[in-house]
Design a protein around this nucleic acid. Sequence first.
DNA 1: TGTTTGACGGACA
DNA 2: CTGTCCGCCAAAC
Length: 100
Amino acid sequence: MTPTAQLEALVWQLVASIPAGRVATYGQIARLAGLPQQARLVGRILARLPAETRLPWHRVVNSRGEISNPNPTRQYQHLANEGVAVANHRVSLRTYQWQP
DNA sequence: TGTTTGACGGACA
DNA sequence: CTGTCCGCCAAAC
C-alpha cells in the first residue's frame, strides 16, 4: 500500500468519525491526520469520492463554515437532515464544530 | 518537463 | 465586511 493510499484511508476514517449533527473543517481533518498544512489534500480526497459513498463528506466545511463543494445542493440537504442550520451560506462553527 | 489548478487556511490591509 | 498574498502539493494540462 502506498503512503498516499494510507493517508487517504486515514482521512476516510477521520471523516467517518464526525458525528451526525456536527461538522469539521478541512484543516481540522488535516491536523488530526498529522498534516497541519494540508487542508487542500483533504479537499482533493473528498473530491474523488464516488457519488455512492457512505462516507459523511457533507460534514466537512471550510474554516469559515462555508460550503466549498462546487455542487452544494446535496450537502445542504444532508446537513439540514441532521439538524445543522446553514444561514447565509454559512454554518456556525461555534455551534456545530466537532470537538474530538 | 514546466505551468496551472484547486471541496484550503492564515496573515494582513 | 472584501480583497490580496503566500504556503501547500498532487493532478491535470
